[in-house]
Write a protein that binds this DNA or RNA. Structure first.
Lengths: 117, 117
DNA sequence: CCAATAGTTAAGTGTATGCTTAACTATCAA
DNA sequence: TTGATAGTTAAGCATACACTTAACTATTGG
């Protein structure tokens, strides 16, 4: 196992957990406190704080504490990096399919292969 | 921990590992055999086969065996699902920022807040 | 047939992850 | 000042993950 944690590892790792995706989903509607994030989740506040730490380490979420409440918000840039990695791979593959398609059309212009006599 | 593995869990989990991202990257250039996938990786073939199993379980990769070689290819649909989940959250957040911006402009048309006398 | 190639499978190992409980700190409100 | 609120931190535990080695099966070229 590689031990260096590239930004993308952290982002995808963070998104792999359903609880954390729920938290991100909530935050995409607007900022929230830790307790608000915890409210729909069937686990202790402590566990939620730990999930939040993972999200912050990944750069997907940022937070600041004012008085005794910590307000969390989404960091769209990190989301964007992950999104871009995927879309680039997909685009690369789809370009390849296009070239392949073009090649086939060029090689064999008829829809059905002609029967050899 | 939830135990039911939704498709997105599997996809993001699969992408969280740098080795598997290298494999996906390779496959985005075109199909490859297991050995070809293993070639740039500093680990045993056995480990690569296990990574491949994760990728297949996630739906990101599909493979078929002909003779003794297994040919792997990318499954763009699964990539697309992960991509869409991210882009939807990001879009939701960005729409919110836009509305907020519009609200602020509407409320306070001047660039600088006017000093109260 | 036989050796090399390509991959598979099982078992074991160390580390990481997702929780819990419990004890604690800081802020706010009456 | 005191009690409730909001969050933090440490320790412990069970399970999951990323490997390894080793023994194995199937295919193919000579």
């Amino acid at each position: 196992m590689l031990n260096y944690q590239a930004p993308l590892d952290l982002a995808f790792q963070a998104l792999a957990d359903p609880t954390r995706r729920i938290m991100v989903e909530r935050l995409s509607q607007g900022p929230a406190s830790v307790s608000e994030l915890a409210q729909p989740l069937a686990m202790t506040l402590s566990a939620v704080v730990q999930h939040l730490a993972v999200l912050e380490a990944s750069g997907l979420v940022r937070s600041q504490k004012v008085g005794r409440v910590r307000t969390c918000r989404i960091e769209p840039q990190a989301l964007h990096s992950a999104e871009r990695w995927i879309s680039e791979r997909r685009a690369s593959w789809e370009r390849r399919l296009d070239r392949l398609g073009a090649f086939l059309v060029e090689t064999e212009p008829t829809t059905k292969p002609r029967r050899k006599k």
